[in-house]
Nucleic acid binder design. Structure first.
Lengths: 219, 219
DNA sequence: CTAACAAGTTAGATTAAACTAACAAAATAT
DNA sequence: ATATTTTGTTAGTTTAATCTAACTTGTTAG
């Protein structure tokens, strides 16, 4: 059996690793607001249980089983958000806290019913994909930034493939998962693009960079 | 803050005391399948928190605050059961386990919305009353057995007022909370009634007894 | 290249919620 | 009325999940 607490760690790790394939103890610690030693011992425990690849001083990765478990929790979360908005009339910004709790309910029938009543949705109210009942996340809704056109507004969802250098570059530019970018222009010569986001105006991103950035168009 | 575990103890105590105003450590222990010493220390804790009147070797009672807390949990449980049946298409016998979990969700808005979507129901799918948002249980749906007529089928819901002797009498007759009785006849002379229930055929109950038994007619 | 800083780890303490074993009080039955 | 059984309590242990303090490893800036 897998506790609610363990589920929260798996989910955090899934979301962090989705961006770059691995994550650190420190990142989980910050995200969950739990001190590093606690995270450290939980990672060892989840490693014992076969959900995490843990080696001292190395970055953390989810095992295939860990990915599936996490995706199934995220499935429950997103189905719930969708249900709350579509069937109960909540606003999209009111549903997260409730879904954080309902995602831990143990009842396959309950979520199957939700899924059915919703007509088997593939994305949640924020446009994020809902993993299927095997924990497989359709990633088709994400596209690479270099396939977008001038005027598009998109949200940065993932970086693939990623390298330390690339992530440092993105950090230096204040580009984080969830950042919304507006494409001002595309240079035909080298396919570099000029974008606005946050406080940054007219930042230029090379095609080497834009070819790694997975984004979701804002509907 | 009140933990999920504490909520379960309060609910158990509420349900047990609803029948007779007080309950024992042993009864809670059996109902929750938790050993007596654990129950004992939890009762002391809940007493510290002001939810339970605890005195060594004395029966347990809920304080007014404890009653309110418990009733509000039961409200969430019953609203949920109603919602699952009415809005999601579950059968009445599939909803208990799910409601046991959802009753612990912390989100007033969630339950307010349910209540609203259901049109402010006053009873759950099993006919049990739903306490209002102040934790007040309408008991109008329960009537005394001596006000019923021949042929009625009713469920025993509570005993009021109760005494040790009465409860022992009821136990000896296998009459428990939840027992369904069918009224065969009523003796005009002394108002004693003859009933069937469980394996018991033609048991006679005096008016002194029937005037204390709160029952719910089976719709 | 090394000093300083950041990140990761180990050890040990704390709290909540469970348990068993042993003892005390109350209820019951002979 | 006393012995037996049931119920309640106390004391001490366990496990999960957190923490702080102290130490180690790895990274980064002069």
């Amino acid at each position: 059996m897998i506790s609610q607490t363990e589920e929260n760690y798996l989910k955090a790790l899934y979301n962090l690793t989705y961006l770059k394939g691995e994550a650190s103890v420190n990142e989980i610690s910050k995200r969950l607001e739990i001190k590093m030693p606690t995270v450290n011992s939980m990672m060892k425990k989840l490693s014992e249980k076969g959900f995490v690849h843990y080696e001292s001083y190395k970055p953390l990765k989810l095992t295939e089983e860990g990915k599936k478990e996490a995706a199934l929790i995220i499935r429950k979360h997103r189905l719930t958000e969708m249900y709350l908005v579509e069937k109960m009339g909540f606003a999209w910004d009111e549903v997260h806290q409730i879904a954080e709790q309902i995602e831990h309910i143990h009842s396959p029938e309950f979520f199957t019913k939700m899924d059915q009543l919703l007509g088997y949705p593939t994305v949640d109210p924020h446009g994020s994909p809902i993993p299927d009942h095997n924990g497989v996340m359709r990633s088709e809704s994400y596209i690479f930034l270099d396939t977008c056109k001038t005027g598009d507004a998109v949200t940065l969802m993932a970086v693939q493939p990623s390298s330390k250098e690339l992530l440092q570059y993105l950090s230096a530019k204040d580009l984080e998962l969830g950042t919304t970018l507006t494409i001002l222009s595309i240079e035909p010569f080298d396919n570099s693009i000029t974008v606005n986001y946050g406080n940054r105006i007219s930042e230029v991103l090379s095609s080497k960079v834009t070819a790694t950035l997975l984004v979701r168009p804002i509907s």
